[in-house]
Simulated scan of single mutants.
Amino acid sequence: MRSLSLLTLCCFSPLLFAADVPGSQDLPIVPRLADAQIVDYRPPVELERVYPLGSIRKISGQLRFDGQVSARGQTTSVTYELPPEHSATEAFTVAREALQKQGAELLFWCQARDCGESSLWANEVFGNSKLFGADEQQAYLLLRLAAPKDDTLVALYSITRGNRKAYLHVEQFEAATPLGELLPTSATLLRQLKDTGDLQLLRLKGAPDDNWLRLLSRGLNLDTTLRISISGPSAEAWRQALISQGVRAARMETGSLEGTGLHIELLR
């Protein structure tokens, strides 16, 4: 009778015997979903690292993308295999929201075929064949942590493979020298606005900045159906500046949200 019980347990409760790869551990800044298993762990090592800021493709044997962040520093990575009850999208969202609550800034965010080929992300960017799956089932995000840890980047990559197994890859990079100014892409600002409903740009405390003005106007004009509210100490100045950059006045209104920096809210 006891042997039958053990056989039943082995057949129907495999997660009870699942274990993380030896020596692995979570990154403290990103929570682990329940029952997720670490299937690949790479401890801190100093590397020259390149993170794409655009869709990737290969032309004449060379990896190509529109922009990048490149620096030398310490890299640590963790790859989770997710249990069937959690999707790759869910794990990606939980990780993103946790990092944003810590003040991390989004630099580049793509999903599905907008990212390029999954095989290139898996093998060329992250060097991990477990991350190769369907192009339409992937997402990538590069974030910069808030000061005083603003020389640290975090890359998230989620994928669902053809066998329906889902993975989340988390990579933390601590630059050896200051990263300097890093700006998000216009498409990333638009994706963040549409997905989360707002943009909290705490560094934009004064008069309109030319670089940010170009990024915001381009992002808003990628979807001319959106209407927004702009709040902050210089909200009206930003609204007028965006009008001068070709964003229709009828799409924007001045809001009343208090706080430092520029706050852009999507009007539903």
Rank of each mutant, 00 (worst) to 15 (best):
I59S: 05
D195E: 14
T196M: 02
L182K: 10
L183M: 07
I264C: 00
R218M: 09
A91Y: 08
L63F: 05
P83V: 03
L182D: 02
L120H: 11
E253L: 08
R2P: 00
Q100G: 01
Y51D: 12
L16T: 06
G162K: 06
S24M: 04
A235T: 08
R72I: 06
T79C: 11
F92R: 10
A134L: 13
E46Q: 15
R164I: 06
P84I: 05
A18Q: 15
E97N: 13
D26P: 13
V30A: 04
Y41H: 10
S55K: 14
P84A: 12
G116F: 00
L179K: 11
S77E: 09
M252N: 08
S24G: 07
S186N: 09
R42P: 03
A250I: 12
R239Q: 15
A241N: 07
F173C: 07
P31L: 00
N163L: 08
L33Q: 13
G133F: 01
Q200E: 13
V78L: 04
Q62L: 11
S231C: 03
E48G: 10
I29Q: 15
G219S: 08
Q111E: 13
R144F: 03
A176I: 00
R191S: 14
Y51Q: 12
S129D: 10
Q37E: 14
C10Q: 11
E171H: 04
V50F: 03
E136P: 01
A112D: 14
L63Y: 05
L226S: 07
L168T: 09
R113H: 09
L213T: 03
P178V: 06
V170E: 01
A104H: 04
A187F: 03
S3M: 05
D210K: 15
D114V: 04
L143Q: 13
V39N: 01
Q245H: 14
D114T: 14
G261N: 05
V21F: 00
G197N: 08
M252L: 07
G61D: 04
E97H: 10
P83L: 01
C11R: 14
G67W: 03
K130R: 15
A147D: 09
S24T: 12
V94P: 00
T224M: 09
H169P: 12
A249W: 00
N221G: 06
V247T: 08
L204W: 05
T196Q: 12
L201C: 08
A104N: 03
G61T: 08
L189C: 10
G219I: 11
D209M: 02
A146Q: 11
A250N: 13
N221T: 14
L199R: 05
A95Y: 04
L242M: 10
W212P: 07
E48C: 03
V45E: 05
P52K: 02
L202T: 13
G73K: 03
L242E: 01
R191P: 00
A207M: 12
